[in-house]
Design a protein around this nucleic acid. Structure first.
Lengths: 217, 217
DNA sequence: CGCTTAACGCACTAACTAGTTACTTCTTTA
DNA sequence: TAAAGAAGTAACTAGTTAGTGCGTTAAGCG
């Protein structure tokens, strides 16, 4: 059936912008996947919230899983690129390490979707991330950064010798990640509001202490 | 329609055992929820794997969410009860703390469903756990245990003063939990098999070091 | 032994869900 | 300016899914 739209003066002509539509879909998808997981997210809801047609999702991303993979990859690239911008190599080792711990904490705090996306990906045994070569190479840089800080610290006599940069990296992530991803069950188990302003401040202080005691000479 | 079963000599009469059926359903549900999350798990699959009829799930647990809540509650009670059996109050503070760190790690390692169930519950903002009074009270005992170890350690001059037992508790959980729940993405990011025997041994050693340095006087 | 109660099972439904078909409409460029 | 191709849409399909209605069967008890 044909509708003669020139007859209706009130209708707005659709503005076409592939990149903008793609970006809206990705943003909506990130929120939905983070809120409900890969299995719980609904393609129809994502389309609606992106103010796009569902068909466009399949046009740009092939499938729901293809969309998830893109969302996940972008999330990893975002945190890795933010880490690069810290310029830790220009700071003395102690300051650099503290800054990384603080950054990691604040990134998780401001981007809680990242935590949920990673959890979702682990539920699926990382089958989407496996395919992403660029995420691997950007992660290598992060390990290199921490490795460099450790070496400089040992040379300066402020850090102890023999710490594995990968283990340290994991631990820096762990002390923030666990607290924040489990903030709901944690608030019940420990009977305090883990997301209260003072609680958050106390936690980052504690985390910095933990890491500093761990590396101290 | 009526089937005269006395005519068929080969058929085995169903053995009726409400408790056993309930237990089989719970066991199957734990596995399914852990594998696929609350949203991804299928009630039909749970029924099949429990060798029970789907109708029984609704008979005993009212709904899929009711079943999830029971599974989750049992999981928490199991770890809390295992912690109680450690008898940490009979050990000197340093040994007691190391034992708790090791126990937590090994529990997570042997019961990976626990990690996934907790993740799933946090995706749902802990709405099921909120209702469970018994989980709260058993968690209070855990914090009390750590609190006691810390106090004894300070008195004995081996631990430093002023450490918050809740923060310590969270950190002990964190360093194991993060590593294991993110073992799939972690193995890609850090380009090593995090679940290899030596990797696991290295990690528990590192975690004990982390906690010991943190509390050391 | 017969009766009640609780365990159990089949077959169904109403709502949902990922993905598709078959179009229309806008934009660019030869 | 016309044609081609890309962006966008609505309605549909085939398969799933949580939850139920209702009948059957075993076990315990007076």
């Amino acid at each position: 059936m044909m509708t003669d739209q020139t007859e209706k003066p009130g209708r707005k002509p659709r503005i076409r912008d592939a990149e903008a539509t793609k970006a809206r879909i990705l943003e909506a998808a990130k929120k939905e996947f983070a809120k409900n997981g890969l299995g719980g997210a609904r393609v129809d809801d994502i389309a609606e919230k992106a103010k796009a047609n569902k068909r466009m999702i399949y046009h740009y991303f092939e499938s729901k899983e293809g969309l998830f993979q893109t969302v996940l990859e972008e999330a990893y690239l975002d945190i890795r690129s933010a880490e690069q911008k810290l310029n830790l190599e220009d700071l003395d080792p102690t300051t650099a390490l503290e800054r990384l711990v603080r950054f990691t904490w604040e990134y998780y705090l401001r981007n809680p979707e990242f935590l949920t996306l990673v959890n979702s990906e682990n539920l699926h045994r990382a089958k989407h991330l496996k395919k992403s070569e660029i995420v691997k190479s950007s992660s290598r840089k992060l390990v290199g950064m921490v490795s460099d800080i450790l070496e400089r610290g040992v040379k300066a006599g402020v850090f102890r010798h023999g710490i594995d940069p990968v283990q340290l990296n994991i631990t820096i992530a762990a002390v923030g990640y666990y607290y924040l991803t489990n903030r709901f069950t944690g608030s019940i188990i420990y009977e305090r509001d883990l997301m209260a302003k003072e609680a958050l401040e106390e936690r980052i202080r504690f985390n910095i202490e933990t890491i500093m005691h761990l590396v101290a000479a």
